[in-house]
Design a protein around this nucleic acid. Structure first.
Length: 361
DNA sequence: AATACGGGGCA
DNA sequence: TGCCCAGTATT
């Protein structure tokens, strides 16, 4: 393990990428970056990290922000529960820790949204603690170097033991980042660059030619196909948007009313919308069909222009907790999913065509 | 132990 | 298409 550690640090010192959360940043910045990096690629996170830190430079600033502001800064990044929990975590830090991010793994684990990976990352990187971490990269590197030939997940106890052994001694934060960096840039899933890898001399996968079979990972299930209807209502240049409840899919985000059409439900779209909005709805034709793939669902959304029969009676039900008319400019101040942007954009094209349609009649 | 939770990039 | 990404919370 000593030689592996030295090789990792040498690799890191020579080849680490310059990333905005790498050098001389606050523990709060490390925390923000680690939450954003959960299941999300480095390149995707970079612009979000810059914008988020500019808008919420400290835990105090984040704690004082509105939920809509935080979700607006997270819009498009996905896994929006992360944003809600980071926001809640900032409030805990301000209330219970004087605005300072806690230093120990144990205290970090108490924060919402911080699990064993993230606690290890913050404790080691921001505070120099000998705290281990295991993510997808670590699974790959350790399974290959040590030749672990059984089904693995990032929760595997043996991997955590190895990771713990790895970070004992100097520079635990750099060691954790080094093994992840190696996994991300050298020890990749496909076509690993073993010829450039400082660990290849001691690597079981390299010795046995098993790079393509290790790590052995469980198979993922295919997403479920779901049909949905979306309603586009425009009134005096403003769009009808509903805010989803905090829990569940797209929690806290704003979107045009959308309803799931379960298999075999032949009811009119207007009837489905009326149920959610609590007032009569008229729909006119189909603006577009939007496809959107999530981890567990494959959505096909039929987008319909329409109007409300009794706008003053509008309420909201089902997945929604609020409804309002908002200008397109206001969209940048609210949390909006990528799916909703697609639905909105597909409707915008139709809106521009409207005059022509009138002409044809 | 299994499932829900986004979105994008790549072979 | 399927896989994977600096995972966590809930059931």
């Amino acid at each position: 393990m000593g030689r592996v550690r030295d090789a990792l640090l040498a690799f890191y010192d020579a080849h680490k990428r310059e990333l905005p959360w790498r050098e001389g940043v606050s523990a709060y910045a490390t925390w923000v970056s680690e939450i954003m990096l959960q299941q999300t690629r480095v390149e995707t996170v970079v612009p979000y990290f810059h914008a988020f830190m500019r808008k919420f430079p400290t835990a105090l600033a984040l704690a004082d922000a509105s939920s809509d502001d935080v979700l607006a800064a997270w819009s498009g990044l996905g896994y929006y529960r992360r944003a809600r929990m980071l926001h809640a975590g900032a409030k805990v830090v301000v209330r219970d820790h004087g605005g300072e991010v806690p230093h120990t793994r144990e205290a970090l684990l108490e924060l919402p949204g911080v699990g064993r990976y993230t606690a290890g990352a913050i404790a080691s990187i921001a505070f120099g603690q000998e705290a281990p971490l295991v993510d997808g990269n670590v699974v790959r590197v350790l399974s290959r170097v040590f030749g672990i030939d059984r089904e693995l997940s990032p929760q595997d106890d043996e991997l955590w033991s190895l990771a713990q052994a790895l970070v004992r001694g100097p520079r635990p934060g750099d060691l954790n980042q080094a093994i992840m960096e190696l996994g991300a840039t050298v020890c990749t899933k496909d076509a690993p660059a073993c010829q450039d890898c400082g660990l290849s001399r001691w690597c079981e996968a390299r010795r046995l030619g098993k790079q393509a079979v290790w790590p052995r990972l469980p198979r993922k299930k295919a997403p479920r196909k779901v049909a949905m209807e979306a309603l586009l209502v425009e009134r005096r240049g403003e769009l009808l948007l509903c805010r989803r409840r905090e829990e569940g899919l797209f929690g806290g985000l704003w979107e045009p009313p959308m309803v799931e059409r379960s298999m075999g439900d032949r009811r009119d779209a207007s009837e489905l919308f009326a149920e959610v909005l609590g007032c009569p709805v008229e729909v006119s034709g189909v603006a577009s069909v939007v496809r959107h793939v999530l981890t567990h669902r494959e959505l096909t959304v039929t987008v319909r222009p329409g109007c409300l029969g009794a706008p003053d009676a509008m309420t909201c039900a089902g997945p929604y907790q609020a409804a309002r008319f908002a200008s397109r400019d206001a969209l940048s101040t609210l949390g909006v999913s990528r799916l909703s942007r697609k639905v909105l954009e597909s409707g915008a094209e139709i809106a521009e065509k409207k005059p022509r349609r009138g002409k044809l009649r």
